[in-house]
Design a binder for these strands. Structure first.
Length: 565
RNA sequence: GCGCCAGUAGCUCAGCUGGAUAGAGCAUCGGAUUUCUAAUCCGGCGGUCGAGGGUUCAAAUCCUUCCUGGCGCGCCA
């Protein structure tokens, strides 16, 4: 527990009948600094004691006596407000950050536990477009967040590398694939083959049967089908990898749907043994009527399995392999029902770990005038967006900081950071309307703003050019603008905690914006480097701590913190 | 038709599990730099928190009805 909250709780515990955790839960931070640093609302006590909260606050204030680090207690309306000793607070907070460095904000609550995170999971033979970005960056952030809490994390890219579309692709490739360029095929080529197939199939429906035949061959392990399928996969993965490298999104395993092909029969057998499966309209299903859900389809009437079947097999496999404490799927909210169904089936199969499976859903990305669609080619390619962002940043650098060294590297870090930050900063829940001008705006609450703030702090420290030490006079960090910032830095660990609990990386974005706002106000109000040595040392120490927190925060959401920009 | 999600300033969003005066950014208007990076900061403008009803000492937050938008609802993933 927070040292200062702890002090307040122990004061209150003596004078009320509430339990420690009840008190702690109620402690809040007043909306404005003048009111105090922490507050205890008296509404619950008011209910118990049957007295107005205001008079309880008054009475409590009279019988409570401030003990260090608490310096003042004041009743304001229904609240008992506590003031902390600013220099003790500052010393404690800043020294902690200074000592813990890159691990400030982390803890070990998850040590010994394993979390599996399924994210990105794109389909083979299709380009990654902007709407694929969310899963990747949210998943990556969740990965870092849980890592910071000591969890052992397993990032899985559950590739969409199975299904009838591969039969279609094989047919198209064999018929229209250009012999001379096959070696240099790209995802674009695969995509056009795919489109061509659908055009031709309209005129000649026999192609569909041919495609089904080829998919059957593939399932049966036919060497030619297998070789082509592997070829398509290689081409796609090569392109995906390029983007993952740009975004610095990491996976511990690339295990596609095809991998579970050999396991689904066992899975279906287990489901049958539990008496869960039945035939309906020629298909094999798990009836979920009693749970107010449509049935979960395991097998089509032509005997082929479906993705739900493979997902169930995958879940079993992951449990066997990783023995996870938590398994999460970072997948769009349009698949909510699907996950509800498979989690229910897992539960019905008797797996207690079904309750530890979580669908981390997120809103769709669409254009102002409608949805994105790979089929209609109405998408913005992820690579194009990243390149555009980098180029625009490059121009801004040229304009604002022409003497900067290594402009290309910085432009890349800032451009990509801007895209990641933009995608992460609204709550997962909400749909996002894609708009070039919004994504490529670099002022205000944006990634570049946070990075810029960081770079300015680095600049001060470079200019200072002396070892930073915590042996400073903390009495000099008492101004409101300064103290507000220090209090803000102290919140960082609890923000990570909340982000983890709610699987919500946007909390970290909001937090960073907040810290930067406080820092910039401080920066614009006071001069850090001056002739007054004592004051300089104290402020430099604060600057260094702020730099550290911004760096740690950006790092957790997968964004670089350049020293100059 | 049924289910899930959303509706807060002109636009994009915060508002921490019911609490103090609903906050930011963008846009717009006006200001701040002989000094640490102006990708910054300060101020003005801007709100019946979709609408009605209810619960409560207290509702943007909880319940309910309705409106609007998005998504989903057996052989795609």
């Amino acid at each position: 527990m927070d040292y200062f909250i702890k002090s307040i709780v122990s004061l209150l515990k003596e004078k009320t009948d509430l339990r420690e955790d009840e008190i702690e839960k109620r402690i809040e931070i007043p909306p404005v600094l003048k009111m105090g640093d922490y507050a205890f609302p008296c509404y619950t006590l008011s209910k118990i004691l049957k007295k107005p909260p205001n008079s309880i606050a008054e009475e409590l204030t009279k019988i409570l006596h401030p003990v260090s680090p608490i310096t003042g207690i004041r009743a304001i309306g229904p609240y008992v407000n506590f003031f902390v000793d600013r220099s003790i607070f500052s010393e404690r907070a800043l020294k902690k950050i200074h000592e813990e460095k890159d691990s400030y904000g982390s803890d070990d609550t998850g040590s010994g536990k394993t979390i599996v995170i399924d994210y990105s999971s794109p389909n083979i033979a299709k380009h990654l477009a902007v709407h694929h970005l969310r899963s990747a960056v949210i998943g990556n952030a969740i990965y870092h967040i849980y890592k910071a809490l000591g969890y052992s994390c397993v990032g899985i890219n559950h590739l969409g590398d199975w299904g009838t579309q591969f039969g279609q692709l094989i047919v198209a490739y064999r018929r229209w694939g250009d012999e001379s360029t096959r070696k240099t095929y790209t995802v674009t080529d695969l995509n056009s083959l795919y489109v061509k197939f659908h055009q031709e199939a309209e005129k000649n429906p026999a192609l569909e049967d041919e495609a089904r035949e080829w998919f059957k061959k593939l399932e049966a392990g036919d060497p030619e089908a297998r070789t082509l399928w592997q070829h398509f996969k290689d081409i796609s993965l090569k392109e995906f990898q390029k983007l993952y490298d740009m975004l610095e999104v990491h996976f511990d395993a690339y295990i596609g749907e095809s991998f579970y092909n050999t396991m689904v029969e066992d899975t279906i057998r287990r489901i049958k043994e539990k008496g869960l499966a039945k035939i309906s309209e020629e298909a094999l299903i798990v009836d979920l009527e009693p749970y107010n859900m449509p049935p979960c389809l395991l097998r089509k009437k032509d005997d082929a399995t479906l993705y739900a079947t493979r997902d169930i097999a995958a879940a079993e496999y992951r449990m066997r392999t990783y023995n996870f404490d938590k398994m999460t799927y970072v997948v769009g909210s349009e698949q909510k029902l699907h996950f509800k169904q498979i989690f229910k089936v897992l539960e019905l199969m008797g797996y207690d770990w079904a309750s530890r499976c979580v669908h981390i859903d997120f809103g769709l990305m669409k254009f102002k005038d409608g949805k994105m669609s790979t089929r209609k080619g109405k998408v913005v390619l992820l690579e194009d967006l990243l390149i555009e962002a980098i180029e625009r940043i490059r121009k801004i650098i040229e304009e604002k900081n022409p003497l900067l060294e290594d402009k290309d590297a910085v432009a890349k870090e800032v451009g990509i950071g801007a895209i990641i930050f933009a995608d992460l900063s609204t709550k997962r829940n909400k749909d996002i309307v894609f708009d070039w001008d919004t994504v490529l705006n670099f002022e205000g609450e944006t990634g570049p703003y946070v990075q810029y703030t960081h770079a300015r702090l680095c600049s001060i420290l470079r200019k200072y050019n002396q070892p930073v030490t915590g042996e400073v006079n903390y009495e000099l960090l008492k101004e409101d603008e300064t103290f507000r910032l220090i209090k803000n830095l102290w919140q960082f660990p609890s923000v990570i905690q909340r982000a983890a609990e709610s699987y919500e990386p946007s909390l970290l974005c909001n937090y960073l914006i907040d810290v930067c706002g406080n820092l910039n106000r401080f920066y614009n109000t006071y001069r850090v480097l001056s002739d007054v040595e004592e004051l300089t040392k104290a402020r430099v120490f604060l600057v260094d701590a702020t730099r550290q927190v911004i760096k740690n925060g950006l790092n957790i959401i997968g964004i670089h913190s350049p020293d100059r920009m």
